[in-house]
Computed example of a mutant assay.
Amino acid sequence: MMRNRGFTLVEVLVALAILAIALAAALRAASSSTDAALTLRSRTLASWVAQNQVNEMRARRVFPDIGRSEGQVEQGGERLRWQMEVGASPNRSFRRIEIKVYAEGTPDYVLATLVSYLARVNVQ
Score class of each variant (00 low, 15 high):
L16P: 04
Y102F: 14
E74F: 02
V14M: 15
V62R: 12
M2Q: 03
R96M: 04
A59F: 15
L80F: 04
A22N: 03
A119H: 07
V49M: 05
G71H: 07
R28W: 10
D108H: 11
V73F: 07
N4L: 14
A119F: 09
R68K: 12
G87A: 09
Q53S: 04
L19Q: 02
Y102Q: 07
K100P: 03
L23I: 05
G77Q: 09
N122F: 10
Q53R: 12
E74Y: 07
A17C: 13
E78D: 12
M2T: 07
I99C: 00
F94S: 01
V86L: 03
W82L: 03
V115D: 08
A103F: 00
F7Y: 14
L45P: 05
S89K: 10
V54R: 05
I18A: 15
D108V: 08
N55P: 09
E98T: 15
M2V: 06
V62M: 10
R95C: 02
E11G: 07
R60M: 07
R41W: 00
A26N: 11
F7M: 09
A24E: 09
A26T: 12
V49S: 03
V10D: 10
A119C: 01
G71E: 10
A37R: 11
N52M: 02
Q124C: 00
L80N: 00
E98N: 11
R43W: 06
A29T: 14
S33M: 13
A24M: 11
Q83F: 01
E98D: 14
N91S: 12
V121Q: 01
S116A: 15
A37V: 06
N122K: 13
E104D: 15
